[in-house]
Structures are given as C-alpha cells and as structure tokens.
Write a protein that binds this DNA or RNA. Structure first.
Length: 480
RNA sequence: CGGGCCGUGGCGCAGCCUGGCUAGCGCGCUUGCUUGGGGUGCAAGAGGUCCCGGGUUCAAAUCCCGGCGGCCCGACCA
C-alpha cells in the first residue's frame, strides 16, 4: 500500500486516483473494466445522496421521472442531421439479436433526445399537454477513444431531463432554471463553486441551438464541465414531428430542452476536496458523517468505554466502530481514507473527564468537547466544515483566475501548465463566439469553457483575435 | 490510429538480460497469543494454468516465433 500517494493537486487526476483510490484502497469507490466502471460501496452511496438532492429539486420544479428504452432504432439518430453527426463516432451498435442479423440495427443510447422525441410526438397534441416535463435516471454508453475514471467512462450513470414547451421564451426559461439547479447543488451540496455560462457555438451539444454549462475548477486548475443544459429550439420537434395545436388553433412545433449531470460529478467532488490522505467529503454528501472510535486497554475499560460509546453514538447518530482486533490507529486511518468528515475518539481519559475528542477531516484539528454538548456541537461542526470546504474551493478558483488582453498573454499563461507553476488557470479574455476563434485557442490545448452569464469583470471589450467588439470576457482553460 | 509500458496467489510487485534445486517478497486473508490516545508485535497457516499456442534445450517464468489481453500518453468527447 502506498504510504505517500500522489497528490491530486497539480497532478493528473487519473494517476492520483489509480494510486490512491484504487491500488491504495483508500476509498474503494470504483474500479474499471474496459472503460466501464464498477462503482463500489462508498462511491455508490455518494451517488445516491447526490441523486436525492437533485431529484428533490427536479420534482419541486414539476418534473416527473419516466424510463425510456436502452436500445434506440438506428434510424432515429439520423432524423436530426447535426445530432447524428455529433454522436456517430461514439455509438455502440447492436446488429445481431436472438442469433440473427437485425433488419435495422439498434444503437445503445448515447443520450435520449431521439427516442423521447419519438414519444413526445405521440403524447403531445394540444397546448394543454404543455409544458411536458420529464426526467430519466439511466445509464448510457459513449464509445470514447479515451476513458478516465469517473470523468469519462464508456458507460456512465446520469440523469437526463427533457422538456417540451409552447414558446421559445418558456423553453429558455426552463434551460436557465435547470442550470441554476445544477449550480445550487454543485455549490451548496458539493461545496464546489462553479461558473454558469453559455458554451460557444463550436462547443454546443450536437443538435442544440445553444448549450449552457456549469464549469468548475479542480485543485490542479483544470476545468471540469460539471453539468449542461441545452436549448434545443425546434430542431428535434421538427425532426420527430412533435406538433401541437396552440390556443389560436394553429399547428406549431414544440420548443424543447434537455439537461443532464452524470457520475462525473463524483470525480469532480473527489478532485475538488481530497488530499494526500485520501477522500475528503463535504458533510452533505458523506454517507457516514461521523464515526466514533472507542479506545480501551483492559477488559473493565472495554466494558465502560463501549457502554458510553454506544450511548453517545445513539444520541448523535455517529457510527460506532466497535470492530475487535483492529487498533484505534488502524481505525483512524481507515475512516480518514474514506473521507468521513468527523472522527470521535472516546477512551478512559475522556470517560473520567466527561469529554470526547472530535477531529475534523478537512483541517485535522482535534477538539475536546464535553460529552453533554456533543449532540449540539456535531451538527455545527459539520455545517462549518461544509462552508469551509466551499470557501476554500472558491478562494482557489479566484486565486487561479487571471485576465488576459491579448492572444499572446493567453498563450503565455496557458503554455506549460504544470504543478510547479501553480497548475492550470482560468483565463478571462474578450473572445468572439466564432468557431475560428475557438480553433485558435485549441492551439494551446485549451478551450473556451464558457461565456459567463454574469459578468464579474469589466464588461465590453475587443476580441483578442478578430478585434471585433464583444460584450464580456469568456473563460479559457485547459480542461478534463 | 500514432508513441510508451506491462501480463507471475485476492491486490501490488521482484525474478527474465546471463535458462538449473521446492517460484519469492509486501499487503490482504485464516488461527492463536499479544497490543490498543494515529497503520501493534510474534508465531503458525491457506492460496499459483508464471496470459495463450508453438519452437529451441537434458532442462523454459526466463531464450526465439506467433497470437491474445491490459494500462499510460496524444487526437475525439459529459
């Protein structure tokens, strides 16, 4: 087992992850087979917590969960020209079933706009059927050339929301509402600050009018697209003949949206907060929030300590680690690796003084707390840790965001992004939303991440490539 | 599709160049004792088609030929 694993700060996450989490048995959230993940206990429990946070918000916004087929007739993909062009290279196709060559192959869903468009056309006839607000929790397959644990696996779990509206304005409102939901979960639940923004035309979803995204910064300064929300316009409505009769009695195509987040969020979570000792989980996403490790030497101590430990664990909701044959030290390391926010230590000394030792995972501080106060202090400590994690991540984002006023400056900042030089940066520069400009940025192995919805800088300026006026700075960065 | 690396108990590896006794080490696992405020220590034990096929040889994990599989780096992407 590696004693000093590679830090996620400034290092390649995949390498750190493999060393620390997989081989080092630190958090055992997952392993990978042919680019597909087996998500293990701790990792899946985190996903379940995230699912609940998201699902509650979707339902509050009026969406209902449905489930659509895994296999999509290949012809469906071809109905929207841009869509099929974008997804063709990464499709897994089923050509044989039941021992026979199929007349028409199926594709394993890479996303479900097409099959949902097919059903929307059956379900929607009147303006009274709108808006139609559905969500699906599902697995999808995209045969990418390169996989990275959690961030880009061949198969992944996600949620995809699909809605149909009577007007473009209403659809756009929905697109931005769900982007806000993602930002809220990222920031309030994951303690991961994000920038809400519009993707450039060259980075938008295949088949969308416009795509919006939340962009986060990992500890090494690389950007991670953590969630997307698409304004599909009437593209899929026209492709799948999703028409409705409006209040004026005329036929019109619906305006659609789609939005999704995936198990990539778990990768983002790990890369946002974890340290050399292993996972650090924000309390709101910690499957186990506090563990109580009892310490005793002799049999009579054991009885007294365990009795008190059981009582305190019950009062506070902490998990009692009463495994025999494991030293307290071994237990401390065990839970530290797994990112448990608070570890409580209770031994004979504490019994005598009516105290208990409370240790925070993120900053490592130990605190003596009167046993009687623990039930009240523990939630406060968890809240503070949640907030501190966010604040630290926010500060890191600020510290690594820089302005650039020429293409040369952008290049100088992004060239040789390494840990020694402080890792990656978000470079804010005025950039025209033009595929030719995106291409220029790609020469530095970076991309235009987004054009922020809220301008926190100096407003309008001239494009550093074309010189044309643009109304705000865009985020340029190297990304996962 | 380019560039690099690797297939040896559950996991991580050494051994291969220079062929040779019973294939070794760490972790994990089992049993017992011991220990316990940051990975206790000791003892005993279970566990192997050395990726596959062929060749060379008295003898192959090791050398040769052919296959298969995996990982990492780049191009594609949530």
């Amino acid at each position: 087992m590696p004693e000093s694993p590679i830090t996620p700060r400034g290092q390649d996450f995949a390498a750190w992850y493999q060393d620390v989490v997989l081989q080092g048995d630190l958090a055992e959230p997952a392993e990978v087979v042919k680019g597909c993940m087996v998500i293990k206990a701790n990792g899946y429990a985190i996903w379940e917590l995230l699912q609940r946070e998201l699902d509650d918000r979707f339902k509050a916004a009026g969406h209902q969960n449905l489930y659509f087929p895994l296999l999509i007739p290949q012809s469906f993909l071809h109905k929207e020209a841009e869509h099929v062009e974008g997804f063709s290279p990464e499709l897994a196709v089923v050509t044989i079933a039941g021992g026979k060559q199929l007349e028409e192959p199926y594709v394993i869903r890479p996303t479900s706009e097409t099959i949902i468009g097919h059903f929307f056309s059956k379900w929607i006839q009147s303006w009274r059927d709108l808006p139609m607000l559905v969500n699906q929790w599902a697995n999808i397959i995209r045969w990418e050339l390169r996989t990275r644990m959690f961030l880009r696996t061949t198969e992944f779990l996600w949620q995809e929301g699909h809605t149909a509206h009577a007007t473009h304005a209403e659809a756009l409102e929905e697109v931005l509402r769900m982007l806000d939901v993602y930002a809220e979960v990222a920031e309030d639940v994951m303690a991961m600050p994000v920038i809400k923004g519009m993707k450039t035309l060259s980075e938008k979803f295949a088949g969308a009018l416009r795509s919006y995204a939340i962009e986060a910064m990992m500890q090494n300064g690389l950007a991670l697209q953590a969630g997307t929300s698409h304004d599909l316009g009437q593209n899929f409505g026209k492709a799948f003949d999703v028409r409705f009769q409006n209040k004026e009695g005329q036929l019109d195509y619906v305006w659609q949206t789609s939005w999704g987040v995936s198990t990539r969020l778990i990768g983002g979570l790990v890369m946002s907060h974890s340290d050399d000792k292993g996972l650090v989980l924000p309390p709101k996403l910690a499957p186990v929030k506090a563990v109580l490790v009892p310490i005793y030497r002799k049999d009579d101590e054991r009885g007294r300590v365990l009795e008190a430990a059981h009582r305190i664990a019950k009062q506070t909701g902490a998990k009692l680690d009463d495994r025999e044959g494991q030293s307290p030290g071994a237990k401390f390391f065990h839970w530290e690796r797994r990112g448990v926010p608070v570890v409580l230590e209770l031994g004979p000394r504490d019994l005598a003084s009516n105290n208990i030792v409370m240790k925070r995972r993120d900053i490592g501080t130990k605190e003596m707390v009167p046993q009687a106060e623990l039930a009240a202090r523990l939630p406060d400590t968890l809240d503070r840790m949640q907030k501190d994690l966010y604040d630290r991540a926010k500060q890191r984002l600020k510290a690594n965001t820089v302005l650039a006023n020429s293409i040369g400056e952008v290049e100088a900042i992004l060239r040789d992004v390494t840990a020694e030089k402080g890792g990656g940066k978000f470079v804010m520069a005025h950039m025209k939303d033009d595929p030719a400009c995106d291409l220029r940025i790609k020469e530095f192995k970076a991309t235009v991440r987004c054009i922020p919805l809220v301008d926190e800088y100096d407003g309008a300026g001239k494009c550093i490539i074309t010189g044309e006026p643009v109304d705000r700075r865009a985020v340029i960065a190297k990304a996962y």
